[in-house]
Each structure stands twice: as structure tokens, then as C-alpha cells.
């Protein structure tokens, strides 16, 4: 397990604090004046990340993972709720110096880079905006290239000319160029082949311990999260349904949805039979459902209570909480 010395200081203040984050996407127009109903992509999500800690965020597509990532990296404003770094709340516009402290790496490396600008210039640009002089920029780029394991020659190429794995390293280099404290990684390895995926996961782990990075790692793959993260939050329909230390959540899942996610993973070895579980319907994406638990329609252990009242996120053990009426008896 990758533990940093700063992890979970008792009584210490968290570095990053998301409180009651809610994001409603505006409804599409239907006709001239009528508007449809907005989608509650994220509803009342709160979490903290301590300095040097890596928090994983898992869930199916449409569960609100990316929306949370964008709000935490200050590229999207929450409809309500706040994100604060070291006690200072994100504002719009955000002062440059504070913005530099949180940076993001995205899944689609080709879409995140400008195809017509050379890679070197794209890595350098944030430093130009932040007023670094020429020598400082060159020095920083040279040390970064060594950190992310890219040859210097790549700086003169265009994004379309290099492989997917190399482009992902370019994105990581660009995110790190301003020495941020918090790195938001939105599915950074999902589009990569397994061997390259392993290289990039190792790189993130190394960079994390070298630079004492605090990471919010968004993924749909619990196997990758287990390798990189200290804690994990499981998201369903825009709400956290379970959060806790990674080993505790994977070994003793306390929400039926977490269990379904784990059971759905392919086995590590041939012959370890996976147990089919969960009802066969697709996940919803809107958190504004009526009364009752949002997972009730897919849950195998559903009871009358689940349809009547929505369970709140309640602590089970220190640091481990679940939003299930029957979390204790699973």
C-alpha cells in the first residue's frame, strides 16, 4: 500500500473539502417557452481529502464522477455547495495563484491537447500565463520530462504524432508544470492498453510519493483504484453510497451496489467463478428521484423501508460510511 507520511494526520485539517456539492444541468428547451426538467447530475456530495492522500471515485457512466471532478478542478461551477482548498472557498473567477494549486488530467488525451500546437509549447503555456521567465521554463520542462519518462525530442512533435501512452504522459507533465498540490485524474488510463496502463499507473504512484501529491482519482475500474488509492468513494446516481478505506470497502463492502460492482469485475485467474448479481436494468443518471433509495429498483435485498425513505450516509466504522438501511446486516 502506498502510504504517505502526511496521510490521515489525526485532527489535521483536510487539504481539500467538498461540501454539499450539487450540480443541476439545465433542461433542454421543448418548444419556444417550455423547458423540460433539469438533470440532477450530482446531489449533495461531501468529502474531504487530506494532504498526500489519494481518494478514488468509482461508479458507472452517468453516476456523476466527471461532474464532481470538474467542480473540484474549478472548471465547472456547482449549482450549490462549495469546494475549498486549505479553508479558502473556490470562487469565480478564481485568482491565478490559487487555480494553479489544483490541476487535472483527462481521459481523452487527444481531445485535451490542441492538435495544431507543438507539445512543448502546450506544456510551457501555463508557465507563460503565470509569468515564469524563459530560463525557469526551460529548466522546469527538462526536469518534468525526466519525471514522466519522455524523451526531450517529443517537445517538437504534434499531439497526433505520438502514441496514446506518450500523450497521457504529456497531459500529466502539463498538469504538473505549475507544481500543483491537488491532481484530479479523470479516467487517465481507461483508454490505454494494459501494458501501457500499468506504466502510467506506476508513473502516477511514483509522482505521488515524489511530489507529495494529493489525488482525486476517477475511474470505473476498482482494480486500478485499489492500486493507487488510500480511500474510495462509490457513487450511484449522483450520490455517495459508500466511502471508506480502500481495503475495508473492497473486503467488506457495506452497500449492495458496491458489492454488485465488485462481483461484476472479471476474475483474476481462470476458474474463479464470478457470481452474477444485481437486477438487469441500467443505472439511472438523475439524482432527483422521488422517495426511497435510488438503488432500490436494482437491489436484490430491497425491503419495504427502502421504497419509503432514502437512506442517509451513516458511519459504520471509523472512516467507513454507507448509505444503506441494512448496511450492518449485509
Amino acid at each position: 500500500m502506498l502510504q504517505s507520511p502526511l496521510n490521515r494526520r489525526p485532527g489535521g485539517l483536510p487539504l481539500l473539502h467538498a461540501e454539499n456539492l450539487t450540480r443541476i444541468y439545465p433542461p433542454p428547451r421543448r418548444g419556444l417557452l417550455r423547458r423540460g426538467v433539469g438533470v440532477h447530475a450530482v446531489a449533495g456530495v461531501s468529502f474531504e481529502i487530506h494532504a498526500g492522500e489519494a481518494l478514488g471515485l468509482v461508479g458507472e457512466s452517468g453516476s456523476g464522477k466527471t461532474t464532481i471532478g470538474r467542480m473540484v478542478s474549478a472548471t465547472l461551477l456547482p449549482t450549490s455547495g462549495t469546494v475549498s482548498l486549505d479553508g479558502a472557498t473556490f470562487t469565480n473567477p478564481m485568482p491565478l495563484r490559487r487555480r494553479a494549486r489544483v490541476q487535472a488530467v483527462f481521459q481523452d488525451s487527444l481531445g485535451a491537447l490542441n492538435p495544431r500546437i507543438r507539445i512543448g509549447r502546450q506544456i510551457e503555456e501555463p508557465m507563460i500565463i503565470h509569468g515564469f521567465d524563459r530560463d525557469a521554463r526551460a529548466g522546469r520542462i527538462a526536469s518534468l520530462m525526466a519525471d514522466v519518462g519522455l524523451p526531450h525530442s517529443i517537445l517538437a512533435r504534434f499531439p497526433g504524432e505520438v502514441s496514446g501512452g506518450q500523450r497521457q504522459r504529456v497531459l500529466i507533465a502539463r498538469a504538473l508544470v505549475l507544481k500543483p498540490e491537488v491532481l484530479v485524474c479523470d479516467e487517465p488510463v481507461s483508454a490505454l492498453d494494459v501494458s501501457v496502463q500499468a506504466q502510467v499507473i506506476n508513473l502516477l504512484a511514483e509522482l505521488r510519493s515524489q511530489h507529495r501529491l494529493t489525488i482525486l482519482f476517477i475511474s470505473h475500474d476498482l482494480r486500478v483504484v485499489r492500486h493507487l488509492c488510500d480511500r474510495v468513494a462509490v457513487l450511484y446516481c449522483g450520490r455517495i453510497v459508500e466511502i471508506g478505506p480502500i481495503a475495508s470497502v473492497i473486503d467488506t463492502p457495506s452497500h449492495p451496489y458496491t458489492r454488485a460492482l465488485i462481483d461484476a469485475l472479471p476474475p483474476d485467474q481462470p476458474g474463479q467463478r464470478r457470481v452474477p448479481s444485481g437486477r438487469s436494468s441500467d443505472a439511472g443518471t438523475d439524482a432527483s428521484t422521488g422517495a426511497g433509495c435510488a438503488f432500490a429498483s436494482r437491489c436484490l435485498q430491497v425491503e419495504k423501508l427502502c421504497l419509503e425513505s432514502a437512506p442517509a450516509l451513516r458511519p459504520l466504522r471509523p472512516g467507513h460510511a454507507s448509505a444503506c438501511h441494512f448496511a450492518g446486516t449485509l
Partner: peptide, 11 residues
């Protein structure tokens, strides 16, 4: 190089 749920290694 397959990440596994049952095993957490340093690298």
C-alpha cells in the same frame, strides 16, 4: 501487468 483486486503490490 493486469491490476488485480486480490493483490495490492507496490508496483
Amino acid at each position: 501487468c493486469l491490476p488485480r483486486l486480490s493483490r495490492q503490490t507496490e508496483r
